[in-house]
Every structure is written in structure tokens, then in C-alpha cells.
Design a protein around this nucleic acid. Structure first.
Length: 568
RNA sequence: CGGGGUGUGGCCUAGUCCGGUAAGGCGCUUCGUUCGGGACGAAGAGAUCGGAGGUUCGAAUCCUCUCACCCCGACCA
């Protein structure tokens, strides 16, 4: 490809709208153009990257025996009403009416559509298992689209759905997809991690997320460097403390905390570790107020909390509800002296093992120190794991301690079971001629998000550093003086031809720009290899090779450069 | 949805408080000089200042309404 016949629109300054590195770089490099909130055009250069990702995903899915199909982006309401998701999905679903006032939505996902296909097409166990996938544009009306293509409203997704006669068979395909996903992200050249995940709103049992590791990631991942354990922090278990509760040493006493309404403030006032404080979180569930206790330095885990009996639909208590129950404003609440016949106390495992702790006194401007279970208040009604793990916690697999890193979720695989197949009556006849409901799995990859994630993982002050597998071009030829040097022009055109003949994606910068402009552009758009041709080197038969990942260029003989690149 | 902010040639911004008829840089076009790290000079093109209404002799600037976009929050005492 010759740059003069391509479309490159780089900018020195990024538009103000972008904050995140990948977003700014995608705009500056001219990969995408924003057309509305969470809506982007993929420019020719960006589309090349998107297509590379898409093709790798497609090849690996095909290799795993999945069958590509394409479902409509716009789908009728009736299907969604069958499973109840027309209402459950809420405002995230973009609903559309046609000219006959019939309801449709722009598909945010396609479980219903594929299940409809399966129930109509699959009648016999002999047709199972089967795994269908598509690479299709989705629309989710996010509350707040941000980070460019990473959280766009319209995005490209690969979604696969498998159908089975048994759970064991589903598990086999699930394992195959797990392996396929690992292969895909390895081929993409990304540093990633598969983590155990909560199934969330989609339902089902087993689930793993695939995260590209990046500090700017929206998700926190707990992993064990000493083992293969990795889990979304929402899932990672916080083990009970190994040491038993110490005996009480201190007397219970009031402390003046005129302005200290948080654990941090109280700990700072007393000059003690935050770990010795306990915070109280009041929640409402089943018309009653419940009290959650976690250590001052910990964070509540809402997913875990929701799994406690009676708290499935909990919400945080309002200030007026708190004042009514405690006769005390928020900021000074504690578990001592509350009516335990009315209020259930749920303590995190770490809190249950504490002694001589600090907590609110249930009267304004006071906290209590030297609090002890059994002596100053009854033991907790429930002891459970309700906090997020933190770095340094022992790993649930018993092999060392956890670390926390951040990731960008780019893939998610689920064992759905029969949630959709039974709701939509997707059944088949088994060997005995009996009707059976299919087991389902589903497997998603955020294709467009991967482009952003890859840039988030690979960039420097000069611009994007693409992995070779998804770079828009593998090699760029910077021909210095293309417009005025016969020698450069001839060598550049010949090299361009040879590289193309060798099957290498090459961009010949024949714009005749000054070298600084060419270099800056080629670095910004992240092309892995640059070959610089100029009169200066050519008169000695030499060219210059510059890898995007390295700081120094090296001189290479012109006649060796093609084999150098093909073996790179 | 709550809070904050911004809309001025393709991009980044000044001008807004204190009203006087749109400015600078980048980019673009043409010519010349230059040519291995975002060149220099000259000459140009390009904006009814997000939109609507109002105040005024006069509005980018003041008032009202509206639209769009961005940021923060919607996680905790």
C-alpha cells in the first residue's frame, strides 16, 4: 500500500474529549472518529486493525469447530418478552418502533435469537452438540459511554452459543472455548489473564472472564503469583483469619470524636491502625434493617453480601431510616447496644475475629474503644465473607498470598444451563424418543474493545505500539526524498514490491514528507517495523531498520532487508 | 439520574467578567527556499462564535429557553 493512495489523518493534538491514553491515541492516529456519544466511525487505518482482530477470532473459532452465522442486529420484541428480558434489561436496551408501531430492539446480545433458531432447527440429539457464533454489531445504551471504543454504545462483538444434550457435554465445550480464548489472546499478542467470575445478570453457573492487563482497567482482579488462581475481586474468597480471637485486654470506653465520622478520621485521631476499627453499614432487606460489619480498611463486597440468606435484594439504608433505627446520625454508628431482636448483625470473618476494636458509639460525636465480642455485645448473628479481598490476603487455594491487578474485560464465557432453553422451550428428542431441554453455553469477545485494550497495553510517549498480529501494517518504508531522489524512488518502489510479493503488509510512505513528519506519523500509528531509505545510506547499499519497541535503529544492507523482515 | 464543566474555521485555544462587528497556533491551498526527527518566507481559502428567542443603536460577550459533548458521582457511614 502506498501512503499517497491511502488515507492517513494524524493530528498533533488530541481532541479534548479523550482522557484515556488509548482513546487519545486512537483519535490522534486517526483510527476512529467520534460521531456521537459512544458512537465511532472506524477509519480505513483503524478498520484494518479491527479486521485483524476479527479474523484471528474467526480463525480460532472455526478451528474449534464453531459455525459462523449472522443474526439480525434488529430483533423483534416478542423473543425478548418470552424470557422476560424485554423488561429486565431496562434502559440499556435500545428499543425501536417500526412504521407499524411494532416493537423491536437493537440487539444488546443474542441469546433469545439463537435459542429461537435452535428450537426451530434442532430436533434430534444427533444434531448436538453444536456451537454457533457470529461477529456482529451490538448496541447497549450505556449510562455513561466513555473511554472511546472501550465503553462505546455501539460495538463489535463475537458471540457464540453452544447447545448440548448434557451438562457434561456443555462442560467439554466450555473447556474447549476456554482453551480457544487463551489461544486467541495469545495470538493477538496481549498479556491477559482468565479469571473466575460472577455470572451476573445473564445467569447460569460456571463462568470465566478474560482480562487484558492494564492499570487503567475498570475491573480489579485478584491473582496468586504462586499459582494459576485468578478471580474477579467480586468472586475471590477472603479466608477467615488463621489466628483465633485474642482475649480482651482493654476496658470499653467512650472517645470524643467531635468531627470524626469515618474510620480513617477516627484512626488518625487516635494514632492507631485502620485495621483496628470496625465500620457499620446499614442495609434494608425484606422491610427490615440489617447491620453489616467490616473492618475499617476493607471494602464491602455487594455480590457476596447479596448471597447471604435474606439479603438477596438488599439496598443501602437511607439516612432517615438510619436515624429512625439508631436514633443517631450516620458517622457514629456501632453494633453495641442495638436491639438484636429487631436488627440482625452480620459480621465479616475478619471482624468476628477482632478484639479491643474501635467502633461508633451510636451517639453523636462519640466512638467506642476497647470493644469485645461476648463481653460488650453478643456474638454476631451471622459470620460471613462479605468483603473484597485485598493484596496480601491468603489465597483460597492455600498457596501463598493474593495480589491485585487491574484488567479490561475482553472476553467472558458462561455455562448457561437451561435458563433460556427452558424459557423458550428449546428441546430435542433423545435416544429414547423423550423430549429434553437443551443445555446452553455462551461465549463473548469484545472485538472492538480489544483494539482499545491492546493500545492501552502498548503505547509510549510517541504513540501506539501495536502487537505485530494486529498492526495495520507490519512494515513501513520511510522513503526520504521520494519526490526528488531517483535513487530513493527506485529503491523504495522495488522494496515495496518485494515485500508485498513476500506477503507482508507494507506501507510505503511516498508522500515526500520531511523525515520528521514521516517518523512521527509512523510511530504514532504504531507500525512495528520501519525501514528508512535515503540517499545517504543507499549510496553504500544500506538502509536503516527501526523496531517500534526499540530505541536504537540499526543499519542493514538493502539486499538483506527483505529476508530480515520476513524472519522478524 | 444528581453535581461540575465546555461549546468560537478541520484540530488546539484567546476573546465572555467590563457589549462596539472575530484573534493566534496547528492543519489546508499556491509560489519560492529548504530536506535524516513534526522547516522557513510570502500570498491565500476557510467561522452567520452549538441552536432558538429576548434586551440593545449594536451581542461571541447580557437574559431566558434549548441541544450537544466532557468530567465526577450514583460503594457504604
Amino acid at each position: 500500500m502506498r501512503a499517497s493512495q491511502f488515507f492517513i489523518s494524524t493530528q498533533k493534538e488530541a481532541p479534548n474529549e479523550a482522557e484515556l491514553a488509548s482513546h487519545r491515541l486512537m483519535l490522534r492516529a486517526g483510527l476512529i472518529k467520534r460521531i456521537g456519544a459512544g458512537l465511532y466511525s472506524w477509519m480505513p487505518l483503524g478498520l484494518r486493525v479491527l479486521r485483524r482482530v476479527e479474523n484471528i477470532v474467526r480463525e480460532e473459532m472455526d478451528k474449534a469447530g464453531a459455525l459462523e452465522l449472522l443474526m439480525p442486529a434488529v430483533t423483534p420484541a416478542e423473543l425478548w418478552q418470552e424470557t422476560g428480558r424485554w423488561d429486565v434489561f431496562g434502559p440499556q436496551m435500545l428499543k425501536i418502533k417500526d412504521r407499524h408501531e411494532r416493537d423491536y430492539c437493537f440487539g444488546p446480545t443474542h441469546e433469545e435469537v439463537i435459542t429461537d433458531i435452535a428450537r426451530k432447527e434442532i430436533r434430534s440429539y444427533k444434531q448436538l452438540p453444536i456451537n454457533f457464533y457470529q461477529i456482529q454489531t451490538k448496541f447497549r445504551d450505556e449510562i455513561r459511554p466513555r473511554f472511546g471504543v472501550m465503553r462505546a454504545r455501539e460495538f463489535l462483538m463475537k458471540d457464540a452459543y453452544s447447545f448440548h444434550t448434557s451438562h457434561a457435554c456443555l462442560e467439554q465445550t466450555y473447556a474447549l472455548m476456554y482453551q480457544t480464548y487463551s489461544n486467541i489472546f495469545n495470538r493477538l499478542g496481549l498479556e491477559f489473564r482468565a479469571v473466575s467470575a460472577d455470572t451476573g445478570a445473564i445467569g447460569g453457573s460456571g463462568s470465566h472472564e478474560f482480562h487484558v492487563l492494564a492499570d487503567s482497567g475498570e475491573d480489579a482482579i485478584a491473582f496468586n503469583p504462586a499459582s494459576s488462581y485468578a478471580a474477579n475481586v467480586e468472586m475471590a474468597e477472603a479466608l477467615p483469619p488463621t489466628l483465633p480471637r485474642q482475649a480482651a485486654l482493654e476496658a470499653l470506653r467512650d472517645i470524643d470524636t467531635p468531627k470524626q465520622t469515618t474510620c480513617e478520621d477516627v484512626a488518625a485521631l487516635l494514632g492507631i491502625a485502620l485495621q483496628r476499627t470496625v465500620k457499620l453499614i446499614a442495609v434494608m432487606a425484606g422491610e427490615k434493617l440489617h447491620v453489616l460489619l467490616i473492618r475499617g480498611d476493607h471494602h464491602l463486597n455487594e455480590v457476596k453480601t447479596g448471597k447471604i440468606e435474606g439479603l438477596a435484594d438488599f439496598r443501602f439504608a437511607s439516612e432517615s431510616e438510619i436515624r429512625e433505627a439508631f436514633n443517631c446520625p450516620p458517622g457514629f454508628l456501632g453494633p453495641i447496644g442495638i436491639d438484636r431482636s429487631q436488627i440482625r448483625v452480620i459480621a465479616d470473618r475478619s471482624v468476628a475475629a477482632m478484639s479491643d476494636f474501635i467502633c461508633g458509639a451510636n451517639k453523636p460525636k462519640f466512638h467506642l474503644a476497647g470493644a469485645n465480642w461476648g463481653r460488650d455485645l453478643p456474638e454476631p448473628d451471622v459470620v460471613a465473607d462479605i468483603r473484597n479481598v485485598v493484596a496480601g490476603d491468603p489465597c483460597a487455594d492455600g498457596k501463598g498470598t493474593l495480589e491485585i491487578c487491574r484488567g479490561i474485560e475482553v472476553g467472558h464465557i458462561f455455562q448457561l444451563g437451561n435458563k433460556y432453553s427452558s424459557a423458550m422451550n428449546a428441546s430435542y428428542l433423545d435416544e429414547m424418543g423423550q423430549s429434553q431441554v437443551m443445555e446452553m453455553g455462551c461465549y463473548g469477545i469484545g472485538v472492538s474493545r480489544i483494539v482499545g485494550a491492546a493500545i492501552e497495553q502498548g503505547n509510549d510517549e510517541r504513540g501506539i505500539i501495536f502487537p505485530v498480529a494486529i498492526a495495520p501494517f507490519k512494515v513501513a518504508i520511510a522513503a526520504i526524498g521520494f519526490d526528488r531522489s531517483e535513487m530513493v524512488r527506485e529503491a523504495a518502489l522495488k522494496l515495496h514490491e518485494e515485500l508485498e510479493a513476500a506477503g507482508i503488509d507494507v506501507l510505503l510512505d511516498d508522500r515526500g514528507e520531511r523525515p520528521g513528519v514521516m517518523f512521527a506519523d509512523l510511530e504514532l500509528i504504531g507500525i512495528p517495523h520501519r525501514i528508512t531509505l535515503g540517499d545517504r545510506g543507499l549510496k553504500d547499499g544500506m538502509v536503516e531498520h527501526q523496531a517500534r519497541t526499540e530505541s536504537e535503529a540499526r543499519a542493514i544492507a538493502l539486499h538483506e532487508i527483505v529476508s530480515f523482515i520476513t524472519s522478524a
